[in-house]
Structure formats: C-alpha cells, structure tokens
C-alpha cells in the first residue's frame, strides 16, 4: 500500500486499529483507509460486461472480509493479504454469474469497439475493411464482428455521430446548406411515393446511390460524412420506405 499519501496512516496507526478489532469504529477506519485498493482492483476487472459499481461493491466486500480475517501475527503485510482476498472475491463474482473470467464483451461494448476499429482501419487502408481484418485488429471473433455490425446498423445515427465543433449541427446536417440541390425527377419519385416524405438528406443519398449509381464511399466523400454513416442512412431510409409500402 502506498505510504506516501499525505493523509494515510502510519504502519503503527494501522497496527493499532487492527488491535482494536472487532471494534466497529476501527473496522470502519480500516475500510476507509484501504478503499482505494478495492477500487483499484474493481477497475482492473472492469470492461468485462459487469458495471464498475457492482465490481467496486464486490471488491469492498472482499476488503471487509480481509479486515475481519487478517492475522497480524503472520508477518504478511495487510495490503498483500487484502489484495489476494479482493481478487478472490472478484473472481468468485464472475464465476457465480456463470462466466469464465475472460468473458466475451457484451454486444454493445463489442459494437463500440468494432465501430472504432472500422474507422481506424478505414483511414489506414483507404477502403472498407473486411470482417477478418476487423476481427484480427480488435482481437475478437469474426462472428462477434458480424453481430456487432448488425447491431451498429440498428443504432440511431445520432448516438454514434459526433457533433461538430459548434455542437449544434453535425457535419451530415450541414449538407442541407449546400447549394447543390438534388433535383429528383417525377419518374424517380413515382417509383416509391414515400420517397417524398423522407428527410432531404436521406432522399439525396438514395438518389445518388440508386439513380446516379454512386458508391457509398463516393457519397460519403461528397457529403463529408463517414461511409458508416451513409450505410446506416441507406439502411434506415430503405427500411422506412419498406414500412410505408407495407402499410399500403
């Protein structure tokens, strides 16, 4: 344990507190003193699908057990003993949930990881990565990547698109301000009347993709948004059209 913290107690004071046990006040003082150790291990075990708060609670329980069971006569520093007890408690916590310690991340966390990996690879390679490339880079299974990509498509675009610096509009929204108007022929609109009801940006993207035959990457470049965003908007607007069509 770090003895260099300004407000931490000396070894002698700690030993004195242990001698006072099972006095509840002394126990509480010790728990407060070593709480940073519990928090440290809780953080070490985070990112495996369990909320940090739960882990902190579990680690704190491990700390209390350590305080109650510690035998100063053994000559082992309390911090060493407590660390082992806390880690044991955290491992049991995961085991009780039927999880191996190296649990796969949950879908949402994987989706965030995959989203980040895709952006990085895309920039590095100048093209869309393959599932295999993403899996290798993120060190997860190819099936997990596929599942995450599917989940990413389902997200609302707002949740994933970072606002621009002024935080009032995203780069995607600002395309409406551009002068180029996507003149859409009556003939084209008649193919799917619901097209008229789409937001202009989505209509523009569908027009470029299906009328002008542009690729998603070209559209992304033209509109200054990510290809992932174009892809999501295409999926989203096709879904809207399909729902509208099925409504009659």
């Amino acid at each position: 344990m770090s003895d260099d913290r300004k407000d931490s107690r000396s070894d002698e004071e700690i030993a004195e507190l242990f001698r006072k046990l099972p006095d509840p006040g002394a126990r509480e003082e010790l728990a407060k003193e070593f709480l940073p150790l519990a928090e440290y291990f809780a953080r070490r075990f985070s990112g495996r699908g369990e909320p940090v708060d739960d882990l902190t609670q579990t680690a704190s329980l491990g700390l209390l057990n350590a305080i109650d069971r510690f035998d100063p006569e053994r000559g082992v520093p309390f911090s060493t003993y407590a660390a082992a007890t806390i880690v044991g408690e955290l491992k049991r916590h995961f085991r009780d949930r039927g999880w191996a310690l190296r649990v796969p991340r949950n879908v949402q966390e994987t989706a965030i990881l995959v989203n980040r990996t895709v952006s990085t690879l895309w920039q590095e390679m100048g093209r869309a990565p393959t599932v295999r490339e993403i899996a290798a880079s993120a060190d997860i299974g190819e099936d997990d990547v596929l599942e995450a990509l599917d989940a990413l498509q389902a997200y609302t675009t707002d949740s994933l698109d970072a606002p621009t610096a002024d935080a009032t509009s995203t780069a995607a929204e600002s395309i409406g301000a551009e002068d180029r108007s996507y003149e859409v022929s009556e003939e084209w609109l008649s193919l799917a009347p619901a097209l008229r009801e789409l937001p202009e940006r989505e209509r523009a993207i569908l027009y470029l993709r299906f009328f002008e035959g542009r690729t998603q990457t070209e559209i992304a470049d033209e509109l200054g948004i990510s290809q992932m965003h174009v892809s999501r908007l295409v999926s989203q607007s096709l879904e809207k059209l399909r729902q509208r069509a099925s409504e009659g």
């Binding site: 895709v118 093209r127 393959t130 599932v131 993403i134 190819e142 596929l146 998603q216």
Partner: peptide, 13 residues
C-alpha cells in the same frame, strides 16, 4: 459474404 472476404460496405449492401 464475410467468408468470401467481402469488405463490410459490400456485406451491408
């Protein structure tokens, strides 16, 4: 498509 090593934009399409 993933097994065919398609890039993800094509998989989505």
């Amino acid at each position: 498509a993933a097994r065919a090593d398609m890039p993800i934009d094509q998989i989505e399409e």
